[in-house]
Amino acid sequence: MNAPAAAPEPAAGGGIARGETILEVRNLRKYFPVTEGLVFQKTVGNVKAVDGVSFDIRKGETLGLVGESGCGKTTTGRCVLQLDRPTSGEVVFEGVNLEQLSNQELTPWRRKVQVIFQDPYSSLNPRMKVGSILGEPMRVHGIEPDPNRRKQRVAELLGVCGLPAKFADRYPHEMSGGQRQRVGIARALCLNPDFIICDEAVSALDVSIQAQVINLLEDLREEFDLTYLFIAHDLSVVHHLCDRVAVMYLGKIVELAESDELFDNPLHPYTRALLSAVPIPDPRVEAERAHQTLKGEVPSPLNPPPGCVFHPRCTLAVDGCRGALPELRELRPGHWVACTEVS
């Protein structure tokens, strides 16, 4: 590879104004090869975990990515983080195509894009005290080289996330799940990122603790001018927290719209079925709701159905759905749907 004069470095403060595009994902694909044979492995197929996903995120907004297990939402997040290098497609962050950077050139960008994982039990190193979990990244990235200042900053971060400063001396096992998740959030914040991917960040928490963490995420977004990609399967949480929502099914985005618009007027048959399956915590509302139960299960991403991937379970499917892959069309302003049978 011919090295360019200098690899692009992130500008201080991001240089992106609120409302402008901070992240562009274009035609992202991630295939995982399936191999056979012990010595001479040959590829016998590909799991198409993410298959042609495109979306934009504007600075300051929260985009929700929802779908059921195996729909590719987590892989999409990992590709944006460059934890998995995509098979093809572009991830453009603050105007720079991250796909064209080497691993070394990526380092300064990794600081800008952080992640909060689902499981507060397995995503923190059990042998490190909270102080090191938060201080180490600051040292590695040279943000706070002075140990005393670093300690002070750890205490500040804990305070921001609603934990007392003395927690810096604790090990992860000495804390509850909610407290651990707050440490996970503090860790994502310690490098002053512009963008945070929340991958099922509140799913493992009990309802009362979950509400505390949701409010914390909302406050931090305002305070630090953050942009979130919020990956989750819980539609009620996504509706509450996200400005716009993309629904994924079998590696593809089937619908994308403003949050209230999507939940008030779902257009894609899959989105409709998904929303109808979510029970609402109110017996009077539930008694009056029409419930549409989706038949069958999600097909294997190893061998997805031809044409529209949803057609085998779809109530609206016609012959044409088996042939061509439906494109995302803008049916209302800002409301994109990949279905030929709705208008």
């Binding site: 009362s208 509400a211 509706h239 509450h240 927290l241 949050s259 929303l275 979510v278 609402i280 915590p281």
Partner: peptide, 11 residues
């Protein structure tokens, strides 16, 4: 009941 987000009320 106050802690659960509800899908059927506007944001």
């Amino acid at each position: 009941l106050n802690s659960v987000p509800r899908m059927d009320v506007r944001r």
